[in-house]
Design a protein around this nucleic acid. Sequence first.
DNA 1: AACATGACCATTA
DNA 2: GTAATGGCCATGT
Length: 106
Amino acid sequence: MSNGREDSTYERIYAAVCQIPVGCVATYGQIAGLAEASGPRQVGYALHALLPGSDVPWHRVINAQGRVSPRSESDHDNVQRMLLEAEGVEFDSRGRISLQRFRWQE
DNA sequence: AACATGACCATTA
DNA sequence: GTAATGGCCATGT
């Protein structure tokens, strides 16, 4: 455990993900830049560690290919697509998102 | 301390 | 357009 205030890299990543507006998506590399993370790998790692009981919209984070990243369990990726569709994000016939239209641009 | 793993990205074929 | 390789760094054993 740690003290009440966490200055970990994860905290910055969570904050960046929370900043993503509804109906938009962001890539791991983009989050890494906003969160000042050392690399996109740590973003994915942070999200994997945050899964249970988090108010962070992790489903709005996708990879640079505009696709949902395949994680250990195949169930979760299906959920992510459903959540995005519920927020207004449209998927391609192959389950791909048009970054040109839905990518979060500050 | 070292090794192996991981929800990635960019380049190359 | 897809598939494969190397490099990035933090985490757990």
